[in-house]
Amino acid sequence: MKITIVCVGKIKEKFYRDAVEEYKKRLGRYCKMQIVEVADEKTPDKASEALENQIKEKEGNRILSHISDSDYVIALAINGKERDSVELAEHIRSLGLHGKSSLTFVIGGSLGLSEEVLKRADEKLSFSKMTFPHQLMRVILAEQIYRSYRIIHGEPYHK
């Protein structure tokens, strides 16, 4: 399976980059994983709702340009479905068994995802009701994908 993480912005902190690269390397034996970064828009302090929507739309258009019609898209969103690690693993396994060969996870910027991206998504996934920095979310997502493949292959993982 090919897994793509499309995310807004770049990771500035080396320790986050190193962590994501480590999980990407570990995942190499299970799947092909790539990370696509799209440019983020600067949001002025006290931006109006209309301006925030314009910013999300611009970022959303950049995200959508990296998603093909055949991709199964999972958008990370606070109001998405929550799954534990075993459920996520089973879901990824099931998608593969049902012919989904290209899985794309989407992580939005500081304002979240545009309506267009959420409409394109096949599902929404929530890791928590809490808000996390998008740089940290990349690490958490990469680790959970790696953990999923360990579970799928019956290999040990920390519970």
Rank of each mutant, 00 (worst) to 15 (best):
I3Y: 08
I3K: 11
I3P: 08
T4G: 06
I5L: 15
C7D: 01
V8E: 06
E13G: 05
E13C: 06
R17F: 12
R17D: 11
K25H: 14
L27G: 05
G28S: 09
R29C: 09
R29G: 08
Y30A: 12
Q34I: 13
K42G: 11
T43Y: 00
T43A: 11
D45V: 13
A47W: 12
S48M: 08
S48I: 01
E49C: 04
E49R: 13
A50Y: 13
L51R: 15
L51M: 14
Q54G: 05
I55E: 06
I55G: 04
K56R: 15
E57A: 14
E59I: 14
G60P: 11
G60V: 12
R62M: 13
I63V: 14
L64Y: 02
S68C: 06
D69I: 10
D69K: 14
S70W: 03
V73S: 00
L76V: 08
N79T: 13
K81T: 15
K81W: 08
S85V: 01
L88G: 01
L88W: 04
E90R: 13
E90F: 11
H91I: 02
H91L: 09
L95C: 08
G99W: 02
G99C: 05
K100E: 11
K100P: 02
L103M: 11
T104L: 08
F105V: 09
S110N: 00
G112M: 07
G112S: 06
G112A: 05
E116F: 03
V117Y: 01
R120P: 13
R120M: 06
A121N: 02
A121D: 07
L125Q: 03
S126H: 07
S126M: 12
S126N: 08
F127G: 04
F127L: 12
S128E: 11
S128N: 03
K129L: 14
K129W: 00
T131I: 08
F132T: 05
F132H: 00
P133N: 08
L136N: 07
M137D: 03
R138M: 00
R138E: 01
I140T: 06
A142R: 00
E143C: 10
Q144G: 09
I145Y: 04
I145H: 08
I145Q: 02
I145W: 07
Y146G: 01
R147S: 01
R147C: 00
S148M: 08
Y149S: 00
R150I: 02
R150W: 10
R150Q: 09
I151P: 05
H153V: 04
Y157I: 07
Y157A: 06
K159G: 07
